[in-house]
Design a protein around this nucleic acid. Structure first.
Lengths: 269, 269
DNA sequence: TAGTGGTCTAGACCACCTC
DNA sequence: AGGTGGTCTAGACCACTAC
């Protein structure tokens, strides 16, 4: 008997189904998560609505606390739900920014004195929140791509962007220190047209770009800086800007809150 | 006293630190996760190595089973560790495919009779695993973009791609049924050059593409079809192909295992 | 067969939020 | 003040893996 019989009815519930429908072999917490997920997709709970809490689920499904928690944990890990301490678990929404990868870097944008970030916002309020400009020895991956000597100095520009009070983007740019020395690129405010306009003035006009895109779960640090909730990945964009003759002049490593962005690339065959 | 004293030494461990370093307010499971994470980043555990198991952590950190589990759960949710039932928890690796978004769709690719997927693989073994071709009423989001009447028939091509035995990509294409009727596009095998070469023959040569990219955690179904492990997001690519005069002729919705892909877009300023 | 992770129970204390 | 989620304990049975 042992621990087998604190509640026989409950144990039987697990042993019998094999005989009947058989399809009941999945763990309880997953079945609970399924019913909630289906209810959400059926529209019974809309974005922002409160889901049944741990106590509700314990009662309605006759399970222990941890099991109800596990079920809610599944939905949070899927990014479908979001818990607020002391308040409850709620259905999440998804209203992303659209980032046009190619048009935004067309020369008309920065050539005309507008920051390329302006193309992002479509009247929404995306602003720089934190800026830090330093000179540092180049990390290996940077020196390799920029084609400078290992450990040689690079200008590093770190910025954070905030949309409606929520941080959505971290960007770190690396430029060879010798070619930007003394220019506005080493200032917090780079002036009209931004870094690329200044590079053009210095004789390193960017004519070609490469963007590499990955996605993964955020590190602890990234999650903190972007205030990312559980179950939300980050998108990593690594952009390299090339001047004439394929000379790489800037690397921009960006970390985006995946729940805040849709990337768009438009191109001809 | 109450439950406060099953092991005083343990409780004190939580109360005292406030006086000393104060910085010990974080939950135990996070501190355990931190030490493991740091050990991994310091190279003490390389990709594929086995991490200390639940029993190890219970012993070395003097915690209960569930707490050790929570710690390991953190690393799995971050995608840096992976559990294998009955075996242990292991450090994950990351060796992605490179998908060149623009060159691969340059007309030389499919114009010369090669599948565009060939450009992906770099000699690696990416093959189609499952194909399904049907005719269905267009879902709303599709009929809107394809500019056909709601519910009108579309040709739907569903495929799954496998790399070295692991599924990495689900792709579903939608094309207006009237313009592809009778062509090889409605067959499982579309012939040399694939769908785009056939469209060209039908007078709908794709001349422009738009790709939209998002990322999120996989649905249950996606996780199953891609055999995705916990803590790994999916990348969603929605590509629209346009023929002359901006006529949309195909929508391809793709779901990628984010741990298997890097996307690349190359373009001029 | 011994060890591993996966699931589950039945309690507990806490910080936090809402009322 | 009462309810909520967050953390934690100390057990248990199971399926699976490796030897």
């Amino acid at each position: 008997m042992a621990q087998v019989c604190p509640k026989l009815s409950r144990e039987e519930e697990r042993r019998v189904p094999m005989a009947s429908t058989n399809g009941d072999r999945r763990p309880k917490y997953q079945r609970i998560a399924d019913t909630l997920r289906e209810a959400i997709q059926a529209g019974e709970y809309g974005p922002g609505d409160r889901l049944p809490g741990e106590n509700d689920l314990m009662a309605t499904h006759d399970v222990a606390r941890m099991t109800a928690r596990q079920a809610l944990g599944v939905l949070q890990a899927e990014g479908i739900a979001e818990s607020r301490k002391g308040a409850g678990v709620f259905v999440r929404a998804f209203r992303p920014l659209r980032r046009r990868g190619i048009q935004r870097l067309a020369q008309e944008q920065w050539g005309a004195g507008r920051s390329i970030w302006a193309a992002d916002t479509e009247k929404r309020d995306l602003v720089v929140d934190q800026v830090e400009v330093t000179e540092e020895p180049a990390p290996e991956r940077i020196s390799v791509v920029l084609d400078v000597e290992a450990e040689s100095k690079v200008c590093v520009r770190r910025r954070r962007f905030v949309l409606d009070g929520k941080p959505v983007l971290l960007a770190t740019s690396y430029l060879p220190a010798p070619i930007v020395a003394g220019s506005a690129i080493t200032e917090e405010n780079t002036g009209p047209g931004g870094v690329y306009a200044r590079l053009a003035e210095l004789g390193y006009k960017p004519v070609h770009f490469r963007e590499e895109i990955r996605s993964r779960m955020p590190s602890k640090d990234e999650a903190a800086q972007l205030n990312i909730s559980a179950g939300t990945p980050v998108i990593l964009i690594c952009r390299t800007a090339f001047a004439d003759e394929g000379r790489p002049v800037e690397i921009n490593e960006m970390t985006l809150d995946a729940a805040s962005y849709v990337l768009e690339y438009d191109f001809d065959a």
